[in-house]
Design a protein around this nucleic acid. Structure first.
Lengths: 351, 351
DNA sequence: CCTAATAAATGGAACGTTCCAATAAATCAA
DNA sequence: TTGATTTATTGGAACGTTCCATTTATTAGG
């Protein structure tokens, strides 16, 4: 059923009555070959059902045109969107990237990275798994493989990073909440082993400080970065003596959870409790109510990252400039109308 | 910055004072090597910062342990879930699968397949892109590479298929709707170039017939398989003279769109119009209202597909049995309570 | 018609592994 | 001791390409 031993360049050569070198040249589109010869060879290639053996070629050439995208959680639409952005530019550069999922698991990530290296990748763009150890990328570094981080960074590392301006995004969002009249505001979700977390939390804190929210009135609740985490955060927040009236969520997934939990309690998102998300995934716009969120231009950052790694490969360097992408707050319905002093939902505030 | 010429098995041999053959044996974990020798070698491997060159090895061995997962749309959480299911079993089998996205584009798929073949994949599990031409997999077939289709199938092809029981799922869902008292029911979304579409539509039709819905009262609206498509379907359906009162949607994305559009019109999903989805993605449970949907055990089918391809690779065959997975209807809120003759929403029915 | 220059095609070594057949070393039976 | 057997180790060919250095064919210049 399977074909006989697979055809090689030599079989083609025989078929076409030329030397293997000639076939190789044709395969590479060299202009040195007489057009009619090339034609003959191409016909032979078809006839014998040849498939190029990239492994053999790489053995000789030592640069492999395989590019890897290592993603921490493909199940999360945010990262899927990111991956798709990258793919777009790889595609138009004529390379087929291989995607590998680490499922937020550093051990798995280790395996994936190892496998990719053994495969001889030319370059990598990585959104590192939570809890990645500092040394995880040393192998790649000493091997001189171009790597760029996207969306997430490691505490200290020389690897170039493409991220959104998390600090600014959080600042903007928090200012929006405070501008709406909220005086007791919370930060929901995320965990401190991610540096993004500190960046976003930092923006939140700075806004609170700048806009006169008392330290006691800015509440932070760590939690899973998922719908579930959002639900949990809201529950514990509302159980407090003086609960917050608004929250900036670590990401949209958390925000969706909060929205859900509010509804389940019979509270009206927006009117009774304002929530803003982060990332502005596609779904945010279609949620009920539509989610106010910090747009980070996910696909755009993906494209940027892809370009950078391509450039690095081309110029055989392992260094590149970081890029901090602009963000902007897109206001929708989840924060309701302004709550200026008409003491709506009965949650008093100490202004 | 980059290391000097990368270390090979020969460097290790020199370092450890043994022959390259010995190193090779150690690398493969052969028991023929004296433990202390093996230890010495392993130390040398560490010392020189060796990375295994799988390309070179494959050249010699001719079976590559690379497995590919070709997915039509990673952006769709349903397929992401599927991919994750497959990954789980590949991981525990000790292989790192490479995922490639075709973005529902047959041309891209062609490229991806070509690249994978050149890479020398040992096997493939594929959810083919819409509009895949019949010959797209011939290359793989003549090369004798094990391939299994998952979730989707091609009109005619000898390649084994793992899918849910689409016909039965649609039947169940439709029967549920009719059981609730609906007499004018619709099928929303999907397009006829997918064979899944015909399977699901077939189940819908059969249920209608079996349960006495007049041919004129079973409406079918083709449309995009997305939220957007769902919105469009609902709009055109409600614009009819005698609109349906319930719909089975091609998949959950369409159903979400319908839910959204209902809300936007001030209609209450469930009470005013019943909707059931298909696939039961994770989100269905958390939607507002929670979506009644046909659960297909996505991850389970993914696992199954992975097992099958692994088995095929191992037994060097290109054939395997099809598998039709059981489905079940999970009833939530989107169909409301039974609508037995208490003429609730003012939409009369001719029973 | 010969030489120089150019164009087209080619042989062979090299890339880093695996694995067979062969060797070397150790153990055993007599 | 000697050969037979087992246990460890090793050299070398092979895998399918690329690319350099050559060779061969073609054309141009005189």
């Amino acid at each position: 059923m399977a074909s006989r031993a697979k055809a090689t360049i030599l079989d083609i050569a025989r078929e076409a009555g030329v030397s293997k070198s000639t076939v190789s040249l044709v395969l590479q589109g060299s202009g040195l070959i007489r057009p009619e010869t090339a034609l003959k060879v191409r016909k032979a290639i078809e006839d014998v059902g040849y498939v190029y053996n990239r492994g053999a070629a790489n053995l000789r050439k030592a640069h492999s045109n395989v590019i890897g995208m290592v993603i921490n959680d493909l199940t999360n639409p945010f990262f899927a969107e990111l991956a798709v952005g990258m793919e777009r530019v790889f595609q138009s550069a004529g390379v087929v990237p291989f995607i590998a999922n680490t499922a937020e698991n550093p051990v798995r990530q280790e395996e994936v990275l190892k496998s990719l290296m053994e495969q001889g990748v030319a370059g990598l763009v990585v959104s590192p798994a939570r809890g990645t150890t500092p040394g995880a990328f040393r192998r790649l570094e000493t091997a001189g493989v171009p790597v760029v981080f996207v969306m997430r960074r490691l505490p200290e590392s020389r690897i170039p990073v493409i991220t959104p301006d998390n600090h600014r995004g959080a600042y903007l969002a928090t200012a929006h909440l405070i501008g709406k009249g909220h005086r007791r505001v919370a930060f929901f979700g995320g965990s401190s082993d991610l540096v993004v977390y500190h960046e976003r939390l930092g923006g939140f804190r700075e806004a609170c400080e700048a806009l006169g929210i008392a330290p006691a009135d800015r509440l932070v609740f760590e939690g899973e970065t998922s719908r579930k985490g959002g639900i949990a955060c809201l529950e514990t927040a509302l159980a407090m003596a003086a609960p917050p009236t608004a929250a900036l969520c670590f990401n949209d997934a958390v925000a969706f959870g909060v929205l859900l939990a509010l509804r389940k309690r019979g509270l009206e998102p927006g009117a009774d409790f304002a929530v803003v998300g982060f990332d502005d995934v596609a779904e945010a716009e279609h949620y009920m109510p539509a989610l106010t969120s910090v747009a980070v231009n996910t696909a755009g950052l993906g494209e940027r990252a892809a370009h950078v790694v391509l450039k690095m490969i081309q110029s055989r360097t392992t260094r590149a400039e970081d890029h901090i992408g602009a963000v902007n707050l897109v206001v929708r319905e989840s924060c309701g109308p302004d709550r200026k002093e008409h003491g709506c939902a009965g949650m008093g505030d100490a202004a």
